[in-house]
Amino acid sequence: MQKSLHIDPNKCTGCLQCEMACSWEKYQSFTTAKSRIKVFSFHHEGRFVPYTCTQCDEAWCMIACPVDAIQLDPVTGAKIVLEPTCVGCKVCTIACPFGTINYVAQTGKVQKCDLCDGAPACAKACPTAAITYVDSDWTGLEKMRQWAGKTDTNPATV
């Protein structure tokens, strides 16, 4: 079964545990600036939205890369940056419609979410289940369940 990161912004509180977990996974440091998942705060709307790579099937970053530095992990479906191959041309950052692959000046390479080999640290760290790692075919399951729960099953009173 293939799994996907599933994000429910309504549950996000903006605590950034996910960003710290991501940074720890890749840098052994809690530096949120290095995270591959970003929580955006829309202050005037009172909304927090975690945002990361959705691992497109037709991954434009992968197609755009001139040196084949982005490869598909056949098990997780993640599109993975091979750092030794990446030349830092940034074409992938232009190709990606979502902005979730980014250049890192420090290393001269790009970085993106790689699903942590199938055990995403962000999902594990999220205290409110705003980020979950679920069956790719059923990312809507929780939403369906919620709406189903709102169904008025009481007999109509006359």
Partner: peptide, 19 residues
Amino acid sequence: LVTNGACFGCTIACGRISR
């Protein structure tokens, strides 16, 4: 109340966000 909000690293999230 619009929602509750957290400070950095907080898993309680007591903050009030109002409109």
